[in-house]
């Protein structure tokens, strides 16, 4: 725990921890490594016995195929549009709701929480048909908006459940002080509360982004036109009736995951700096 070693200089203990850390991450992410190298293997090598740790007859053909297909860029762009919009909508609704839940003292909050938690438990595969009906009535089929609205039902529950305790940690006293100074509820939310919870909000936002980025069922159902489809639907195009092009699946998945993973790693730094700036001190 960080508190056991206030962080001056890393020294031997730091190096040991780093080494163990690397080993842990390496072991844990082995399947991810497997994904990357499988993209370079031929399909019979994928099933070779014994398994090969490194492609023996490495081929770039899957990646060449991916990058010479204009569709891949289109799939990724669609994923990005859907993920960013879903994240924005979720965070706005989720923050407001979580703030209210942490401030209202009433049974209604319990009812609201149960409602939200329960409503997100149906597997999407079963929700997809009625969702289709809703969005057809709204005239939104074949729009990204429909997918964003539908996907937000998956992410909003998560955001509320997780943001509520974060908002609850902001002491009432701080807000009281702001009110005495004449601040309105909105001002207090914006100027006092939000800066104190932004780390938590950032984490929730990032996770919401990833959830929406990987969404499969709703786009498949609500978008019938290929040019609107996001990448997770695109990945399925290689899984055919009688066989799957696994090396292409893996190549596409690598291209799909890597940029987001990199962005996420950069974002980690933001989270760290948010912490060290002493938001909660």
């Amino acid at each position: 725990m960080s508190a056991t070693a206030p962080s001056e200089g890393f020294g031997l203990r730091g190096s040991t921890l780093t080494l163990i850390g690397i080993a842990l991450v390496g072991l844990y992410l082995f399947p991810v490594y497997w994904m990357y190298i499988s993209a370079f293997k031929t399909s019979s090598e994928i099933f070779a016995d014994p398994p090969t740790m490194f492609p023996e007859n490495g081929t770039l053909s899957s990646f060449v195929w991916i990058f010479t297909q204009e569709h891949v860029g289109r799939y990724l762009r669609n994923s990005l549009i859907i993920a960013v919009s879903t994240m924005a909508l979720t965070i706005v609704l989720g923050s407001l709701g979580a703030y209210a839940m942490s401030r209202i003292r009433s049974r209604a909050v319990d009812v609201a929480l149960v409602t939200v938690v329960v409503l997100q438990t149906f597997p999407e595969a079963l929700l997809a048909t009625p969702m289709f009906v809703i969005f057809r009535e709204l005239g939104l089929l074949n729009t990204h908006l429909a997918v964003v609205l539908a996907t937000t039902t998956k992410t909003l529950g998560f955001a509320l459940v997780f943001l509520r305790p974060i908002f609850a940690q902001v002491p009432f006293a701080l807000e009281e002080a702001a009110f005495i100074d004449g601040a309105s509820r909105l001002q207090s939310f914006r100027l006092v509360v939000f800066p104190m919870v932004r780390v938590g909000v950032l984490v929730v936002a990032a996770l919401t982004f990833v959830m929406a980025y990987g969404e499969f069922v709703y786009p498949l159902t609500l978008l019938t036109r290929a040019e609107l489809q996001p990448a997770p639907v695109g990945i399925y195009q290689f899984v055919g009736a009688e066989y799957a092009d696994w090396h292409r699946v893996m190549a596409f998945a690598s291209v799909f995951v890597t940029p987001v993973l990199l962005i996420f790693l950069l974002l980690q730094r933001r989270i760290v700096s948010g912490l060290t700036s002493g938001a909660l001190k």
């Binding site: 725990m1 960080s2 056991t4 070693a5 962080s7 890393f10 203990r13 730091g14 190096s15 921890l17 780093t18 163990i20 850390g21 690397i22 842990l24 991450v25 844990y28 992410l29 399947p31 991810v32 994904m35 990833v210 980025y213 990987g214 499969f216 997770p232 990945i235 399925y236 899984v239 799957a244 696994w246 699946v249 893996m250 998945a253 799909f256 995951v257 987001v260 993973l261 996420f264 790693l265 974002l267 980690q268 730094r269 989270i271 760290v272």
Partner: peptide
């Protein structure tokens, strides 16, 4: 573990999320 301060701790912690980002089809395969 990764709350400990050591070089690369935050990045490594972030890397774990790669597992969660893969499409289920890919994880299953």
């Amino acid at each position: 573990y990764f709350e400990n301060r050591f070089p690369g701790a935050r990045y490594m912690r972030g890397l774990f999320l790669a597992a969660w980002m893969l499409p289920p089809l890919v994880i299953g395969a």
